[in-house]
Write a protein that binds this DNA or RNA. Structure first.
Lengths: 137, 137
DNA sequence: TGTAATCCCTACTAAATTGATAGGATTAAT
DNA sequence: ATTAATCCTATCAATTTAGTAGGGATTACA
């Protein structure tokens, strides 16, 4: 299941990408428009900023803005920041690999093989999709 | 994340598929061999039986057996029984569709489109993979 | 210089889910 | 009868999720 955090995060990024002015976009504006609890969204955008996807400006007339062009923001990066590993099991994760306790030899593990296939197909989608695609721009 | 339930279930199915004799396979044997807590596994196999994937025989010399050939047991069915919906959001689920609270029009939702792509690719993998593939037979 | 608007940060909490465990009821072979 | 198995229900601790609360720090602008 996709977490609300990820869903809200994607919606917020889309909103920012679609905003035409070059002024930063305020959390309150996004929260209202996308029906997201504002305080919850604050935390999400903070995470996205810390990861380098968003930049921010504090104080009056502050807000958030994209650090790159929408067409250069890949879903692989966004999803890893918001949702964590893309793989469904740590033993097939590229970025967060972990050995399974119960698997003596993972190359013989039937689950392993299946999950590698799923991971590769999901990665393909996320690698070929940018924020520009999501935003329809 | 794949739940332990699903992981254990897949391993158990593989184990049964590989067992050559036509005697039913006992939970205790699978649990020991695959390092799965036996009581936990009992519940999982029960679920698989109720869904029609496994059959069982009670009493002494009882156990579980496949109801179809491994090559006819598709991962779509197994995954739906063990893990639930394949889609990452209910609004793109084929079998468990639910409208999102926060989405006025899901055809305009950026998350929706992305998640349909992920779902289709994952489905493709699960549709093209059978228990025979997992079991290497 | 003051004030309002805005992001930033930490801590807390309720509800749901997960990964089990416990204890027995039922069934069937010997 | 005894033994070995599935079947069933209840319970539980740990974790995660989704959100709330309360304020601190920074900036624009009157």
């Amino acid at each position: 299941m996709l977490s609300k955090k990820t869903k809200y995060g994607l919606k917020a990024l889309t909103f920012i990408a679609r905003s035409e002015s070059d002024m930063p976009v305020q959390v309150s504006v996004i929260a209202k428009s996308e029906q997201i609890p504002q305080k919850f969204l604050e935390g999400i955008l903070l995470t996205l900023r810390k990861s380098g996807i968003l930049g921010s400006k504090k104080g009056k007339h502050g807000g958030y803005y994209l650090r790159s062009l929408p067409s250069e923001i890949k879903m692989t990066d966004v999803m890893r920041v918001l949702e964590g590993p893309i793989a469904m099991v740590p033993c097939v994760s590229l970025n967060y690999y972990e050995k399974c306790d119960d698997c003596p030899d993972e190359h013989k593990c039937s689950v392993h093989k299946l999950m590698i296939e799923v991971r590769d197909n999901t990665l393909k989608v996320f690698r070929n999709t940018t924020l520009a695609d999501l935003s329809g721009i």
